[in-house]
């Protein structure tokens, strides 16, 4: 009875509820690691894209040209995110309003700023996406594991009540198998919590940068709207 006390036998001998808990935790761990990997790649790419775009933007290139490049990218099927989408929303709205309203620069500014705000909030949403799942896994999976453990230990002790000679060897396998649930819960929770903290930090800084960029860009637009016309060809 003691010899085959491997993890496999412990898991297969566990009660159905404990097994369900273990399965749930394993799936949670898989899903959270999947999301961690995806988010990691996403943030790396977003930072690179932001750096590239900022370089391009402040290199003095014609903004209309930049917009057209973005159009070409869209046609290629690549999605555009981050600061570039903020820029595109503001620029599009600005040029459209400029054509329609002509001289009313306040209305043009207001419209383009609103468009940028909308794009910014959309970007924020994109950046924060599925961090909620990591937070959920990080905070609940220890409890789920604990639940499985408590249930398993409960059963182990109930079994102990029916035994004449109560030795530690009677309950030990049950407790051991029950504790696997807690171990799995912690295994799922710890990376999820770490990743959540890290990613929410990164996403916050990214959104801050987008926000700053939107302000900078709107100041340029403001200069264009209120300043001397035709200095910069928009």
């Amino acid at each position: 009875m003691n010899e085959n006390l491997s993890v496999v036998s412990l898991i297969t001998n566990a009660g159905p509820l404990v097994q369900g808990v273990m399965l749930l935790l394993f799936l949670a761990s898989v899903a959270s690691w999947w999301i961690i990997a995806r988010r990691f790649l996403f943030f790396r790419r977003a930072r690179h894209e932001y750096a590239d775009f900022e370089n391009e933007f402040w290199s003095g290139v014609d903004l209309g040209q930049l917009y057209k490049e973005g159009n070409a990218k869209l046609e290629e099927g690549r999605d555009i995110g981050g600061a570039e989408s903020v820029f595109r929303a503001g620029f599009k709205e600005f040029s459209r309003l400029r054509q329609q309203m002509g001289g009313d620069s306040d209305a043009v500014m207001e419209g383009s700023q609103r468009a940028m705000r909308v794009a910014l909030s959309r970007e924020q949403d994109r950046v924060d996406r599925s961090l909620g799942f990591l937070a959920t896994v990080g905070s609940t999976s220890p409890y789920i594991g604990l639940f499985g453990t408590v249930w398993g230990i409960m059963n182990a002790f109930r079994g102990l009540a029916n035994v004449q000679q109560a030795t530690l060897a009677v309950v030990a396998p049950g407790i051991s198998e029950a504790l696997i649930a807690t171990a799995m819960g912690l295994f799922a929770a710890i990376p999820a919590v770490i990743a959540f903290n890290r990613f929410s930090n990164v996403s916050q800084s990214l959104v801050n940068r987008y926000d700053t960029f939107a302000e900078e860009f709107s100041s340029i637009l403001h200069r264009q709207a209120h300043g001397r016309r035709g200095e910069r060809d928009i």
Binding site: S6, V7, V8, F26, S29, V30, W33, W34, I35, I36, A37, R38, L41, G77, R78, D79, F187
Partner: peptide, 29 residues
Amino acid sequence: GILSNYIVPTLFTVLLHILVVFTVLIGWQ
């Protein structure tokens, strides 16, 4: 883009879990 978006994380996740399970099994034994 879609490939790297989905396949890389999936592969990474699966490999990581297989590794963990094997480590646990061997260490436990």
